[in-house]
Amino acid sequence: MDFRPAAPAKAVPSGNLGRLAFGFLAVCVASGVALTPFYSPAHALDSLERLQGGLPWGFFFRALHTYSAFGLLLAAAGHLIQVLAARTERQLAGPEWWRSVLLLPLLVAALLGGFVLRADAEAAAALPVWRHILENVPLVGAEAARLVLGAGIGDPGAVTLHHAGAFTILLWLFTSTHGGRLLPDRRSTILAGLVSVALAGTVPLALGSAPGAGPSASAGSLLLGPWYLLGLQGALVDLPVAVGWLGPLALVLLLGLLRHARERARRLLIALAAAWIGADLAFTVRLLLLAKR
């Protein structure tokens, strides 16, 4: 069911990665639904261990869920680059553009939520970092942290709720609104599914060490966050915690303003966004080097 009339052919020059992203979202949601009965936030690590080693094909469905989410992120990012390259951002109305841009932080939040639900040593370390960043936001920080991460320190219950509920519903809603259809097309869904299956089978997904499983489990190694936030983690090694929310906010603003900028300003904004990504990559490399030491 379409929410809006189909765009003219010339108005859809942004490649097919957007549709593929929707396909990945569908695979991700479906595999997530399959995992839900086996996950309990009260016994988060136990649930993951059971999925990973105790249930037939549990590891596969978990990997399917994870790789489809990564596929969603990469396809969405690729789609954004296609849009900017084709200069088609003005085909969307202002509010719709901003809503589409907001898909990115929403998607990252959903993915980060999934990372935290692993409840292994890295996830257990990531949760307080996330809370600390949120709480650093002036005025609304403390409440936002309670809303997103819950009141109980170290309890992934609220994150579970948002990961499986609020974030997913919003993602689907914004994506379907943006794509002009409630469901992804069959071909994209099949392609996304097959890619996810191929990755889930051939690149097994590891689970980190249990928190407090002994010093030798993590001795000498830095606990790393999710790969898509390594740049931010690297920046926070030296920079103040405010960078944790100012950085992403800056990128969202840069992308959002692109829709309203004239030619020179647009070039400047794109240059700034590129610089942001370059810095992010640099911080990622530095963090990885630190972790390797």
């Binding site: 080693g53 037939p56 094909w57 590891f59 596969f60 071909r187 099949i190 392609l191 599914g193 097959l194 890619v195 299956v197 191929a198 990755l199 889930a200 089978g201 051939t202 097994p204």
Partner: peptide
Amino acid sequence: SLISAVLAGVLGLFVAWGHETAR
């Protein structure tokens, strides 16, 4: 690309079956 994906998917399932057996 669809055929390639189907082949990759089948390969993935086959390898996953091996992992499942080992698990």
